[in-house]
Write a protein that binds this DNA or RNA. Sequence first.
DNA 1: CATCCACAGGAAGGACGGGGGT
DNA 2: ACCCCCGTCCTTCCTGTGGATG
Length: 396
Amino acid sequence: MSDIIDQILSSIGKGKVFKARELLLPDYVPETLPHRENQIRKLVEILSPLVRSERPSNIFIYGLTGTGKTAVTKFVLKNLHKRFPSNFTYVYVNTRQSDTPYRILADILESLNSKVPFTGLSTAELFRRLLKKLNDIDSIVVIVLDEIDAMVKKHGDDILYRFTRANNELGKSLISLIGITNDVKFIETLDPRVKSSLSEEELVFPPYNAEELEDILKQRAKFAIYEEAINDDVIRLCAALAARDHGDARRALDLLRVAGEIAEREGKDKITVTEVEKARVEIERDRVYEVLSTLPFHSKLVLAAILKGLKSKSTLTTGEVYEIYLKLANKIGVENVTQRRVSDILNELDMVGIITAKVVNRGRYGKTKEINLAVSEDIIYKAIVESDERIASLWS
DNA sequence: CATCCACAGGAAGGACGGGGGT
DNA sequence: ACCCCCGTCCTTCCTGTGGATG
């Protein structure tokens, strides 16, 4: 028995691909950020008052996913803090992970070493505690709110307004906000007071092109992967796939890392384009599984309805999906939700990238959504059948 | 050129369970 | 022990709308 385990362990242990796999993980902040020199310079300039222990302007940072917004922000703050540790503190909150005002405030308080209950308090109470804490600390605090658009779309800009007013309530200027968003149009939807206050300074991150992605990948690969285990074709393919997807560096790094993991798992000593292709499928599959696992039952059922419907048509409307959904609900004997709810569910499925639901006007034939899958059908099918047996029974 | 389709999507609220404060 | 606040799903009722059609 132990032979088997030894075998497995040794085959895992003697990975021939990665020198330092962690350098390819999404939250790793590298020492150099190629093709972001301008953004770094601008950000340091804006934040330079910190050197004199003064409050910098609030900053709004835009750019699509994987354009280096988070990395640059963390990089700059980390390095400034290293040089001037007593001048300020900074807090980073990802508002997609902590996507309610309550969680955001709780995260900030926890970063400032204040214990808060998981739930139970009002957000007003948390805000009061935050102000008190800031008053006690009495130094500049830079608060980074990453992926702020997701939170505001769900919960409104009320919390942002409160943040921008916090300096008044404190009676001194301690808080400096950095808002990061993927959605360029997002800022127009903000309350004008919040908008003007939050975007005292603005910074734009353009997408990387394929060449720049290659540079980034090469540079990381140099330290993360053995030279013999990789070649330029692999890097070029990862870069090209990611460039097709609006120049997303995170996606490019993910592809490379997962391709390497696949190579090691299969006992190979180098990454080839085959592994990159497998990595692409695997990444997509993992994402679908994860999204589905958190989906409420009726969302899965709506997805099942879409799958069924697309068998006979190339695109569906909300009404068509709802009809099929009603049949399926009836078949497995569960209460159905209203069409209004299904409309929202379709938007949610769109938001997480499993389907595309585009609003179209068809004149005389009304306004509806055109619904299509955004992920390959068999991946969704497998994921959905495994996630719930009642839904699985619809196919047996 | 008005009409009218097939919904979109906002507003208000309610049931419910998890987790406080006091 | 009791009340309060929260987020999550969901309902009901509603007003809004781009453009093919008559």
